[in-house]
């Protein structure tokens, strides 16, 4: 590394006079007082130049919408008519009063839980399996990642055809083993399971790889000493591996919370009714679908914005709860 550094340094030194805005070659021999000052200014201010383009763009496309949504949410604001009167928190009250908000919030959380919990458990097991000296390691890792490249829209179309209420493959298979048809599109819980299965299919392999990376960072000595103490592999997994990868679990759970609570494409394309609000009784309508319903089907951007803000608050609450919960669970495991 050091030799490398040296050549590099020499290189740069030779080049430096050609730097734009650095004055002609003749300046060089003189004790570079203003050059020093320039260099200091360079070091003090140029970091801002580095982050400025990002922040300028980010303010326009990230922060401005955030504030503007709040602005829209306190007005009567129809899709076609545009801005109307200031109505204070009226839109929020209407949204909160709507039975669909509660129902779709519960749906969203339910789908999220049914997808996340098994997904993380399976991913953990899968990572445990991959954390062996396998033949064709890379190939296995790539194979489990395959579903990740299939878009949610495609996933929803494919799984939608599998989960037909009457003539879908899943029900026909269930019939073979003597189970009656399950109403995947009308039974609330069943529809959540069907949608969660799409999410799980796409994300389990991805999360397994993340866990795998964390597992490989666990010092091997821990396992060896545990093995000497007579702990079996399962026991090692539960009391060493899982607590050791706690930070990674927090990361995975929080990212899946943010993604999971925004779920839209899967339930929308799963819906067979023409209104596409998530079933006749909104059995599987989610909060994001409610945002779409308010804004683009009922053409009321005010209520859509209020719903979006409420969704944001829910996500924040969940992120905090997750953090606390995982910390708690993790520390319990650590004490063992």
């Amino acid at each position: 590394m050091t030799t490398h550094l040296h050549t590099r340094g020499g290189d740069i030194d030779e080049m430096s006079p050609l730097r734009p805005g650095h004055g002609p070659r003749a300046v060089r021999p003189e004790p570079p007082q203003w050059r020093q000052r320039l260099s200091r200014a360079d070091h003090r201010y140029s970091p801002y130049l580095y982050v400025a383009p990002f922040f300028v763009l980010f303010l326009v496309i990230g922060m401005f919408p955030l504030g503007y949504t709040a602005w829209v949410s306190v007005h009567d604001w129809s899709l076609l008519g545009g801005k109307g009167d200031f109505v204070g928190l009226e839109n929020y009250r209407e949204v909160l009063d709507s039975p669909y908000f509660t129902k779709q919030l519960v749906n969203t959380i339910s789908i999220f839980l049914i997808s996340s919990v098994p997904q993380i458990l399976i991913a953990l097991v899968l990572a445990g399996l991959l954390d062996n000296q396998l033949r064709g390691r890379t190939l296995w890792r790539m194979s489990i990642l395959l579903p990740f490249v299939v878009s949610p829209v495609a996933v929803a179309i494919i799984f939608g055809s599998l989960f037909g209420d009457r003539y879908g493959l899943v029900n026909q298979a269930l019939n073979v083993v003597g189970i009656d048809n399950i109403a995947w599109h009308t039974n609330r819980l069943a529809s959540h399971v069907a949608i969660a299965s799409m999410v799980n299919w796409r994300w389990t392999g991805y999360n397994a790889l993340i866990f795998l990376a964390a597992m490989q960072a666990v010092p091997r000595e821990l396992y060896e000493s545990a093995a000497i103490d007579g702990a079996g592999r399962l026991r090692q997994f539960v009391s060493i591996t899982v607590p050791m990868i706690r930070p990674t679990m927090i990361f995975v759970i929080i990212t899946s919370t943010i993604g999971g609570l925004q779920i839209f494409a899967e339930p929308r394309l799963f819906d067979d009714t023409t209104a596409r609000n998530g079933g006749s009784d909104r059995q599987f309508g989610t909060i994001t679908m409610l945002v779409y319903d308010f804004g683009w089907q009922l053409r009321d951007l005010g209520r859509a914005s209020a719903t979006a803000w409420l969704l944001f608050l829910v996500i924040c609450v969940f992120a905090v709860v997750n953090l606390v919960l995982v910390r708690r669970i993790g520390s319990l495991g650590g004490e063992r």
Binding site: P65, Y68, T69, V72, T288, S305, A308
Partner: peptide, 20 residues
Amino acid sequence: FVVATMAVPTQLGVVPLFIL
């Protein structure tokens, strides 16, 4: 600030982005 905004759902921006 940057890390915190990672939690902002894209849906939140859709209405103003559309108006913009």
